[in-house]
Structures are given as structure tokens and as C-alpha cells.
Amino acid sequence: MEDREVILDIQDLRTRFATNEGLVHAVNGISYQLHAGETLGIVGESGCGKSVSMLSVMRLLQVPPAKILADAIKFKGEDLMLIPRSEMRRVRGNEIAMIFQDPMTSLNPVLTVGFQIKEPLKLHMGLSDEDATERAAELLTLVEIPDAELRLNDYPHQFSGGMRQRAMVAIALACNPTLLIADEPTTALDVTIQAQLVDLVKQLQHELGMALIWITHDLGVVAGLAERVIVMYAGFVVEDALVDDLYGNPRHPYTAALLRSLPRMDGRSGEVLEVIEGLPPDLLDEPVGCPFAPRCSFVKDKCREQNPLLEEFAPQHNVACWIDINTGEFK
């Protein structure tokens, strides 16, 4: 099917946090693959483990309280779980770069934007300060910040929110990463600025050819961006499909409900948006059965006892559900 090389292969990743209240089951055994140059969207309600799964891959969680288990997290054939810390540092910011949700707090307020862009250039590419300055100005121009050379000397507070996020993109792209992970990069921005950033990243990805993981809780954003979408729920992957299949033929009751709760772009008025009743499960509880069961309209007794595994429903379309949602009966 897919002839591009697999660059990221996550096998049964489980991440837990030891807290005073008990063990938080943040990620509960997720597996997926990502190909070179592919754009993958990860969607799901806030708190479903999107960020934690990515931070686990980057080994950016503090251990303890975090505990990360996985059969393997292979990046270009190398298991990130096993490589020494120094090797992991060579991957971070160089092979895999990440941009975060809040542009207001993600840049260091006491260092200039230029300094922060130059850091990975000097670290991973060994550029001199002079060369790094030149390259940093190019990068700022690339992310469409005017007067780049002058703006290098600015501090983050002199940038607007949208500009800061673009500066974050410049930092992330500094070393031409193989994979860019964008963790809800537009959530904190105005709608128009959101759209600009999405377009910018799309265009840069096209030019530079990196793979992209775009995390969001907004199915609308991924529609125009991703080739493939993974839907997460309570630390599980519940559906994994090409974008058209997912939107046109959702197979998981949660995905279907999410799509029904989406405002429609064609503006059919009078249509009442559906809201998913109930709350996601408490992650402090050991997961038993299907995590969506308490909110699912198709629920059967079996669902409460056994959690369905993610299985291939059709080529490149995986679902974790006992039921065929077209018939409402067991598959």
C-alpha cells in the first residue's frame, strides 16, 4: 500500500504518572506507524493523551513521576527507548522537532528570538555564531516575519502571538528535521492567524519534505491538512484511517459522534450540533472494557468487560470497536 519508508514505529506505548491520588493511566498501549513525508493528524478531546504520547516519544517527560513503557519506539530503525541520553539529545531538535501549544510561554522571555533560533543551529550543525545569525535570519524570513535581521534582536514579548508561533516554527525547522510534531500549535491563536499558520506549515512541509504530526482537538483543522488521522480516546487509539475514509466512513462510535459535533462549513442552518453526553473515564482507574462504553449508544454487555483491540477493518483503516456501526450488531 504505502511505499514510503516507515520512519516512526510506535509499538504498544504505555505512559503512566505516579501522583498522590494514584496512578494516572495517560496512555494505554498505542501503536502506529508514520512514513517519511506523511502528514498525520491526531485528534481527541483534551486530556486523552495526545501530548503525553508525543512527549513520551521525545523522552521529555520527567521520570518519575512519569513511567514510560513500550515494546519499541523505532525512529529510522533505532529504538528511542534504548538509546543513551546523549543520543536522544542528538535526535531532539535535529531529527525530530516539536512546537507547542502556547506561544506565549514556549519561548524564553529573557533571551532574544535570534539567540533561541541560533541555539539548535550551533548545537546540531556546528555553525559559527556568524553563520548561525545569517541562517536564523533566513529562517525568520522563511516563516514570513518581515525585517528578519532586525527582529532577531527582539525579545519574545516584542512579538505578537502569531509571530511567536512562527518563530517557534523557525526554531523547529532550523536543522531540517525528518519529523515535525506540532502539538495544538494554533489552539491559542485567533482564527485568522490559525489559518495562516496552518497554511505556512503546510507549504513549508511541501518545500522541505518532512513528516508532520499535527495534534489538535479540532477535527476541522486536520481535514484540510492531514493525509491520515488517528483518533484517541482516554489514552487509546480508537480509529486510524486515511482522512477521506475517516470523514466519509467513520467506523468508531466516538469518531462518528465527534464528526456530528462539528459545525458544518456549508452553513446549513437550523441543524443542531450534537454533543457527546457524559465524561471520559477517570484515568486514575485501571482501564477495563471499552473506555467509551459509558458514553456509547451502541454499547453491549461485552463492551464493558473486554476492550476491543485496534483491528484492520479495511486496508489502512483500523478501528477498535466490537460493533459494526452501520448495523449496530457485532461484526
Binding site: 521529555l60 539529545r89 531532539r92 531538535g93 535535529n94 522537532a97 507547542f100 541555539e119 539548535p120
Partner: peptide, 9 residues
């Protein structure tokens, strides 16, 4: 921003 710094390697 400390997480950002770490994510740079």
C-alpha cells in the same frame, strides 16, 4: 520554555 529548550536537544 524549559521544555522547549530541552526539545532542542
Amino acid at each position: 520554555y524549559i521544555r522547549t529548550a530541552r526539545s532542542k536537544g
